[in-house]
Amino acid sequence: MNFDFAAFLEALIHRSPPHVLEHLLLVLVPLLLAVAISFPTGILLTRPRYRPFAGQVLALLNAGQTIPPLAVICIFLPVWGLGYRPAVIALTIYALLPIARNTIAGISGVPLEVREAARGMGMTAREVLLQVELPLSFPVIMTGIKTSAVLTVGTATLATLVGARGMGAVIFAGINFRRVELILAGTLVIGVMALLLDRILTLIEYALTPRFLR
């Protein structure tokens, strides 16, 4: 297989761009859904009432993580069929764990004496959560979100297989037609997307992090 640089450039400049937006949607929509589900769940599982269940829920999510994403899509194929929606659902399920795990770890990592003193000063449970636990665990939670984001950029490639397009369309075309230029171009775009997304999230994190933690 010989490498045609002109074909590579063509793939990069003309074939990839239309799929970038599709791919971005396949990343951002599941990511936002995963945050919307995992972040509150993580908080809930650190409350005294639900803390006993934290281990079980994490075990369940861990198990979910070990199933290959393609398998997740296949398992639900009879229910959801093909297309954009099942891909989003599968990718969301896949992004849940890192966010939930880091939310729980971050909040549990707030030093006991800090929480104790805050309660002892007469802060309500809600005030402790909003003014102490969340600001202090924010960097850890953001790390979880970044992990999920980068993970989803990669796995979203597979969405093409159930007809959801995205950058996977370029890569799988390359595989099917034995065109290494397409594979490389698609991979490069995905790599850059992952790096940029991580960078943007890091900037958001920095802007929102309490000053002393920086």
């Binding site: 030093p111 004496e113 800090v114 104790e116 003193a117 202090l136 309490p210 000053r211």
Partner: peptide, 14 residues
């Protein structure tokens, strides 16, 4: 309405 001081102090680090 009660002052509370503990050995580990527990100042809010942020």
């Amino acid at each position: 309405n009660m002052g509370y001081v503990i050995q580990q102090i527990g100042l809010l680090p942020h």
